[in-house]
Design a protein around this nucleic acid. Structure first.
Ligand SMILES: [Zn+2]
Ligand SMILES: [Zn+2]
Ligand SMILES: [Zn+2]
Ligand SMILES: [Zn+2]
Lengths: 167, 167
DNA sequence: ACTTAATTTGCAACATTATAACACTTCTAT
DNA sequence: ATAGAAGTGTTATAATGTTGCAAATTAAGT
């Protein structure tokens, strides 16, 4: 896969079940490599995050789990999310208080998140050039960057198309 | 002032009272130009935000106002903050749930925020090159960026110096 | 000046997001 | 088997943010 292929979230049609299956398999592999435990709860939370096309909040995850009989309390879900974020399997989008599955798990990376203000989907870019450029600019002022999170708000391709057609 | 002069927050010594006075004067001017009302409450909230060297949360502002006799309720402060953010006088840092005074009020801009994980100060950069680079990358995937917010976490010059000296 | 409309602030109640503390269970390693 | 570590369940609470309506203030028109 080319380094900057268009993020799945920006593609109109794709086999999302496959996305989920791949993500879970990759997560299991990452955990195995890191010696971390990919427990049923963590697996299920990751799956729920991936099943949502939009970023999902912790309480949204709780609702899904509640609907399927389990009745976990907030700390349970937050702990699973903390784990998934720490292992780089999920990203938190601070401006949305919500989480999305990482499309490039395994390697550590700083992402750029493209948030559609019309449909709410979020796509993840990983442009290292942007990060190094910021690192350089900050360094010029004596600031040593360790991690970066970029949130862009705008209109996704699907919504732009829809808007054009409607007019 | 050169376009990318080092942000005030990264300078070790400066006359912060002067910072605050300048910011309030600039805010009054911006509001006048926009035909917006710079009421005492809004002015006071902006002042409180500027008086803090670190980003301040809405409830932190409430505490300051409460300590001086006034007992405003959360909506009062949130509305003042909404106004100040809308007019570009204050920025919200989502990952901190907190606010900082804008160092370049007036012109609309997307900033990069340098958050020191040691002392908590935040400096604002405004590197348009970074924003246009992200805009271009996103556009390559069909996404039309409208606004960007970049949060970098790392070590500020003062803390780096302190750490070097201590070792 | 007087009236009216719009904006701003006060206030009460509530909604959402996140964490602390501790008990209990499950897994891992010796 | 047993001890320690890691994970989960549970209760309660903290921190952050919003809705809706009433009262006060301000701006604008007559
Ligand atoms: Zn990622
Ligand atoms: Zn969209
Ligand atoms: Zn600014
Ligand atoms: Zn610092």
């Amino acid at each position: 896969m080319p380094r900057d292929a268009t993020p799945t979230a920006l593609k109109v049609h794709h086999d999302h079940d496959r996305c989920i299956a791949d993500a879970l398999a990759a997560a299991a592999e990452v955990c195995r490599e890191l010696g971390a435990r990919f427990t049923p709860l963590r697996r299920r939370v990751l799956e729920i995050v991936w099943q949502s096309h939009k970023p999902l909040g912790a309480y949204g995850i709780l609702d899904v789990l509640a609907a399927e009989g389990r009745r976990p309390m907030p700390p349970t879900v937050y702990r699973a999310l903390d784990f998934l974020v720490a292992k780089g399997l999920v990203h938190r989008i601070p401006s949305l208080n919500a989480f999305i599955g990482c499309t490039r798990p395994g390697r550590r990376h700083d992402g750029q998140y493209l948030i559609c203000h019309n449909c709410g989907t979020v796509a993840e870019l990983t442009d290292e050039g942007l990060n190094t450029a910021l690192g350089k600019a900050a360094r010029g002022h004596g600031f040593a960057v360790e991690s970066v999170l970029t949130e862009a708000v705008g209109l996704c391709p699907a919504c732009a198309e829809r808007r054009k057609t409607a007019s």
